[in-house]
């Protein structure tokens, strides 16, 4: 893979990645194809999927220049991280709960919107990443329906 990934899938990590700068995408796989699951932006804690089974179940790819810190599980309630962590959890649970009643197309659009709002480096999902991950057909479908645009080698939300 040309896009670097964070060690998570199948790994027993102690800690979460506290994203200080940059954009990270989580990916999962169905029998037929991969799916972009969620976009993480600065201030997010990446990797809470591991708490269910004690082992990471999502792949995380870094889409931009990225700066992160590994915060050990025991440190999450330290004064230094506690507020940021719980703030993240609240937002994340809102987002995930909203996903419950939305179509996958809507979720993709929402995540493209997130990239455009939170990154100075990219405005959407890089075409190279989309090709590499095998999620091109989902984005092309949105493109055909005029929901998004493909410009400068990036799939972007229409402004």
């Amino acid at each position: 893979m040309n896009y670097p990934h964070l060690k998570n899938f199948a790994a027993k990590n102690n800690g979460l990645y506290y994203l200080k700068n940059g954009i990270v995408a989580s990916v999962t796989y169905s029998k037929k194809k991969p799916f972009l699951v969620h976009i993480y932006t600065p201030g997010d804690f990446v990797g809470i999927d591991k708490f269910q089974e004690g082992i990471g179940v999502l792949d995380y790819f870094i889409l931009t220049e990225c700066d992160y810190e590994i915060v050990n599980d025991e440190e999450l309630t330290d004064q230094k991280y506690k507020q940021s962590f719980f703030d993240f959890l609240k937002t994340f649970l809102h987002e995930i709960t909203a996903y419950r009643s939305e179509s996958y197309e809507k979720i993709l659009q929402y995540n493209l919107e997130k990239i455009s709002r939170f990154s100075n480096e990219i405005e959407g999902l890089p075409l190279a990443f989309v090709k590499e991950m095998g999620i091109k057909s989902d984005l092309d479908k949105l493109l055909e329906n005029n929901k998004i645009i493909l410009e400068d080698e990036e799939y972007k939300i229409k402004k």
Partner: peptide, 23 residues
């Protein structure tokens, strides 16, 4: 954390795989 992890994993997998989470 386990509760939240299970909750979000289940939604993610229901949404994408249309199934309950299974390792």
């Amino acid at each position: 954390l386990k509760y939240i992890s299970r909750y979000s994993n289940n939604i993610i997998f229901k949404n994408t795989l249309n199934k309950k989470f299974s390792i």
